[in-house]
Protein backbone atom coordinates (compact mmCIF):
# COMPACT_ATOMS: atom_id res chain seq x y z
CA UNK A 1 0.00 0.00 0.00
CA UNK A 2 1.00 3.61 -0.48
CA UNK A 3 2.54 5.54 2.35
CA UNK A 4 -0.44 7.46 3.66
CA UNK A 5 1.36 9.42 6.36
CA UNK A 6 0.92 13.17 6.30
CA UNK A 7 4.18 15.05 5.86
CA UNK A 8 4.85 18.77 6.10
CA UNK A 9 7.02 20.28 3.37
CA UNK A 10 8.46 23.73 2.78
CA UNK A 11 8.49 24.57 -0.92
CA UNK A 12 10.21 27.51 -2.63
CA UNK A 13 8.63 28.59 -5.92
CA UNK A 14 10.32 31.08 -8.24
CA UNK A 15 7.86 32.89 -10.48
CA UNK A 16 7.73 35.67 -13.05
CA UNK A 17 6.62 38.77 -11.22
CA UNK A 18 3.45 39.33 -13.27
CA UNK A 19 -0.13 40.19 -12.31
CA UNK A 20 -2.20 37.24 -11.19
CA UNK A 21 0.65 34.87 -10.49
CA UNK A 22 -0.12 34.65 -6.78
CA UNK A 23 -3.79 34.09 -7.58
CA UNK A 24 -2.74 31.21 -9.84
CA UNK A 25 -0.75 29.58 -7.06
CA UNK A 26 -3.39 30.11 -4.39
CA UNK A 27 -6.17 29.03 -6.78
CA UNK A 28 -4.27 25.85 -7.53
CA UNK A 29 -4.20 24.96 -3.82
CA UNK A 30 -7.86 25.77 -3.19
CA UNK A 31 -9.09 24.27 -6.46
CA UNK A 32 -7.36 20.95 -5.91
CA UNK A 33 -7.98 20.79 -2.19
CA UNK A 34 -4.39 21.10 -1.00
CA UNK A 35 -3.44 22.65 2.34
CA UNK A 36 -1.59 25.92 2.78
CA UNK A 37 -0.15 26.25 6.27
CA UNK A 38 1.90 29.31 5.46
CA UNK A 39 2.56 31.36 2.34
CA UNK A 40 4.82 34.35 1.80
CA UNK A 41 5.67 36.20 -1.38
CA UNK A 42 7.99 39.00 -2.40
CA UNK A 43 10.12 40.04 -5.34
CA UNK A 44 13.69 38.86 -4.92
CA UNK A 45 15.62 39.75 -8.08
CA UNK A 46 17.45 43.01 -8.56
CA UNK A 47 15.28 44.01 -11.53
CA UNK A 48 12.10 42.94 -9.70
CA UNK A 49 11.11 40.49 -12.46
CA UNK A 50 11.28 37.41 -10.25
CA UNK A 51 9.29 36.71 -7.10
CA UNK A 52 9.82 33.97 -4.58
CA UNK A 53 6.88 32.26 -2.96
CA UNK A 54 7.57 30.19 0.14
CA UNK A 55 4.85 27.68 0.91
CA UNK A 56 4.49 25.36 3.86
CA UNK A 57 2.06 22.59 2.94
CA UNK A 58 1.13 19.13 4.14
CA UNK A 59 -0.09 15.90 2.58
CA UNK A 60 0.78 12.31 1.77
CA UNK A 61 3.96 11.82 -0.30
CA UNK A 62 1.82 11.31 -3.42
CA UNK A 63 -0.04 14.59 -2.77
CA UNK A 64 3.21 16.49 -2.14
CA UNK A 65 4.54 15.17 -5.45
CA UNK A 66 1.33 16.30 -7.18
CA UNK A 67 1.56 19.75 -5.61
CA UNK A 68 5.07 20.22 -6.95
CA UNK A 69 4.15 18.93 -10.42
CA UNK A 70 1.07 21.14 -10.56
CA UNK A 71 3.06 24.20 -9.46
CA UNK A 72 5.74 23.49 -12.04
CA UNK A 73 3.06 23.27 -14.74
CA UNK A 74 1.96 26.88 -14.25
CA UNK A 75 3.31 28.92 -17.14
CA UNK A 76 4.92 31.74 -15.08
CA UNK A 77 6.64 29.34 -12.67
CA UNK A 78 10.35 28.94 -13.42
CA UNK A 79 11.44 26.65 -10.59
CA UNK A 80 9.97 24.58 -7.76
CA UNK A 81 12.24 23.45 -4.93
CA UNK A 82 11.14 21.15 -2.15
CA UNK A 83 13.49 22.38 0.58
CA UNK A 84 12.36 19.67 2.98
CA UNK A 85 13.41 17.01 0.51
CA UNK A 86 16.51 18.63 -0.94
CA UNK A 87 18.57 18.77 2.25
CA UNK A 88 19.31 21.13 5.11
CA UNK A 89 17.63 24.51 5.02
CA UNK A 90 17.04 27.52 7.20
CA UNK A 91 13.52 28.57 8.09
CA UNK A 92 12.53 31.83 9.76
CA UNK A 93 9.44 33.76 10.60
CA UNK A 94 9.02 37.26 11.96
CA UNK A 95 6.18 38.17 14.31
CA UNK A 96 5.00 41.43 15.82
CA UNK A 97 3.30 40.68 19.13
CA UNK A 98 1.45 43.29 21.14
CA UNK A 99 1.01 42.56 24.85
CA UNK A 100 -1.33 44.76 26.87
CA UNK A 101 -0.45 44.36 30.57
CA UNK A 102 0.28 46.36 33.70
CA UNK A 103 2.26 45.81 36.89
CA UNK A 104 4.12 42.53 37.45
CA UNK A 105 2.71 40.98 34.20
CA UNK A 106 4.22 43.85 32.23
CA UNK A 107 7.61 43.29 33.84
CA UNK A 108 7.37 39.54 33.30
CA UNK A 109 6.63 40.03 29.61
CA UNK A 110 9.84 41.99 29.24
CA UNK A 111 11.80 39.25 31.00
CA UNK A 112 10.39 36.50 28.75
CA UNK A 113 11.08 38.67 25.69
CA UNK A 114 14.67 38.82 26.79
CA UNK A 115 14.86 35.02 26.98
CA UNK A 116 13.42 34.74 23.47
CA UNK A 117 15.69 37.53 22.19
CA UNK A 118 12.60 39.49 21.17
CA UNK A 119 13.12 43.23 20.82
CA UNK A 120 10.77 45.97 21.91
CA UNK A 121 9.52 47.88 18.89
CA UNK A 122 7.01 50.12 20.63
CA UNK A 123 5.83 50.83 24.12
CA UNK A 124 3.13 52.69 26.02
CA UNK A 125 2.65 52.66 29.80
CA UNK A 126 0.39 49.64 29.53
CA UNK A 127 1.67 47.79 26.46
CA UNK A 128 4.64 46.53 24.47
CA UNK A 129 5.04 45.55 20.85
CA UNK A 130 7.74 42.86 20.54
CA UNK A 131 9.54 41.78 17.39
CA UNK A 132 10.49 38.14 17.53
CA UNK A 133 12.28 36.14 14.85
CA UNK A 134 12.71 32.40 14.65
CA UNK A 135 11.12 29.15 13.70
CA UNK A 136 7.36 28.74 13.79
CA UNK A 137 7.71 26.70 17.00
CA UNK A 138 9.64 29.44 18.75
CA UNK A 139 7.04 32.06 17.85
CA UNK A 140 4.23 29.71 18.91
CA UNK A 141 5.95 29.22 22.28
CA UNK A 142 6.54 32.93 22.81
CA UNK A 143 2.96 33.80 21.92
CA UNK A 144 1.62 31.14 24.30
CA UNK A 145 3.61 32.57 27.20
CA UNK A 146 2.48 36.10 26.44
CA UNK A 147 -1.17 35.08 26.37
CA UNK A 148 -0.89 34.21 30.06
CA UNK A 149 0.17 37.77 30.84
CA UNK A 150 -2.48 39.94 29.19
CA UNK A 151 -4.26 40.87 26.02
CA UNK A 152 -2.28 39.68 23.02
CA UNK A 153 -2.46 40.67 19.35
CA UNK A 154 -0.32 38.78 16.85
CA UNK A 155 0.86 39.62 13.33
CA UNK A 156 3.07 36.97 11.74
CA UNK A 157 4.94 37.09 8.44
CA UNK A 158 4.67 33.44 7.53
CA UNK A 159 7.68 31.25 6.92
CA UNK A 160 10.58 32.19 4.68
CA UNK A 161 13.17 29.54 3.96
CA UNK A 162 16.41 29.01 2.08
CA UNK A 163 18.67 26.02 1.55
CA UNK A 164 22.00 25.86 3.35
CA UNK A 165 25.26 25.83 1.41
CA UNK A 166 26.78 27.77 -1.44
CA UNK A 167 24.32 26.89 -4.21
CA UNK A 168 22.40 29.91 -5.45
CA UNK A 169 18.99 29.59 -7.14
Amino acid sequence: MENQEIETHTIAVLVDNEPGVLARVVGLFSGRGYNIESLTVSTVSEDKTVSRISIVTSGTPMIIEQIKAQLDRLVPVSAVHDLTEEGAYIEREVALIKVAAKGPERRESLRIADIFRARVADTTVDSFVFVVTGTQEKIDAFTELMRALGGVEVSRSGVVAIARGSEVL
Binding site: E2, M62, E65, Q66, A69, Q70, D72, R73
Partner: peptide, 11 residues
Amino acid sequence: IDPSSINKNVR
Protein backbone atom coordinates in the same frame (compact mmCIF):
# COMPACT_ATOMS: atom_id res chain seq x y z
CA ILE B 1 4.38 15.07 -21.58
CA ASP B 2 2.74 16.47 -18.46
CA PRO B 3 4.65 15.54 -15.26
CA SER B 4 1.54 16.21 -13.17
CA SER B 5 -0.21 13.29 -14.89
CA ILE B 6 2.35 10.91 -13.48
CA ASN B 7 1.56 9.28 -10.13
CA LYS B 8 -1.65 11.32 -9.85
CA ASN B 9 -4.09 8.42 -9.50
CA VAL B 10 -1.94 5.35 -9.88
CA ARG B 11 1.62 4.86 -8.69
